[in-house]
Amino acid sequence: MKRHSVLRVVAKLFLPYILLFALYVQFHGDFGPGGGFQAGVIFAAAFILYALIFGLRTAHKVASADLLRILMAAGLLLYASVGIVTMLKGGAYLDYNFLRHDPVHGQHLGILLVELGVGVTVAAVMVTIFFGFADRKNR
């Protein structure tokens, strides 16, 4: 798609807004519709658009397979470790009330961290799956 200048320009114009919207969905999930899963998918969609327009090699430079692999595991680990922290603080597994002195603040922090973990894992997995298919074609 290197010759399609209209596509390239429009994609460049849209990409930052798609990424920003993904972040909005991620961190605004407490108040409106959305959350980690949707945000991860939108983030991955922006990345896939980038890969489709500017080529797989350029996309691999931005996010290498190793980085994606680490992020995949890191999201799930973040989620699971929130539960461990609540246990160390004297609560049950994933009982966010114990994260802070005030239970309501604890709930806020816990949900934020957990949703972040979901978002990171989902985004990394979706991009990995796309690369898995697209890279095969190029070989």
Binding site: G29, D30, F31, G32, P33, G35, G36, F37, G75, L76, Y79, A80, G83, Y93, L94, Y96, P103, V104, Q107, H108, G110, I111, V114, E115, G117, V118, T121, V122
Partner: peptide, 24 residues
């Protein structure tokens, strides 16, 4: 309990935290 206006988020991430961990 949570002061989170979106009930879906509080159910998914807090009340049903185990399920969401499994989904992830």
């Amino acid at each position: 309990e949570t002061h989170i206006p979106n009930v879906v988020t509080s159910v998914l991430a807090s009340f049903r935290g185990y399920d969401t961990l499994g989904e992830t």
